[in-house]
């Protein structure tokens, strides 16, 4: 699977195929789950290629609305049935939404390697 990029007015989601890292940057506040579909598809596609480790870098994602958090939560929940993939999430203490929401993800997927700096 090749490198991919999804770019919106206020955000960029970039997939680095070599390192298997999906990087989120900017502010994600799409209006509905439908609008999150392309990003969800990208994450599912990466997961379906069964990498040993998959990393989500959220350090520079300044804002994610409830629909976005919901989408992310569901993706993490989905990985519970796929123990072969080691998911790692990189977060930041400086971003308010990550303080509570990332902990929820850890709960959903205990094997998740959460690294909040």
């Amino acid at each position: 699977m090749a490198n991919q990029e999804i770019r919106g007015e206020d955000y960029v989601v970039y997939y680095n195929a070599n390192a298997v890292i999906v990087t989120f940057q900017g502010e994600l506040a799409l209006r509905s789950p439908k609008e999150y579909a392309p990003i969800k598809d990208l994450l599912d596609e990466v997961a379906s290629s069964r990498p040993a480790v998959m990393t989500l870098d959220l350090k520079k994602l300044e804002f994610l609305n409830s629909s976005g958090i919901s989408m992310l939560s569901k993706f993490v929940l989905g990985l519970r049935n796929n123990q072969n993939i080691q998911l790692a999430i990189l977060g930041s203490h400086d971003v308010p939404w990550q303080r509570k929401s990332l902990r929820n993800l850890q709960k959903f997927l205990p094997s998740l390697r959460l690294k909040v700096e």
Partner: peptide, 19 residues
């Protein structure tokens, strides 16, 4: 009072008892 550890989002997972 932080409520993060008092529950989980409702309707996301079928069983949230332990949370």
């Amino acid at each position: 009072i932080d409520t993060i550890d008092l529950g989980m989002p409702i309707g996301l997972d079928d069983d949230i008892t332990r949370f």
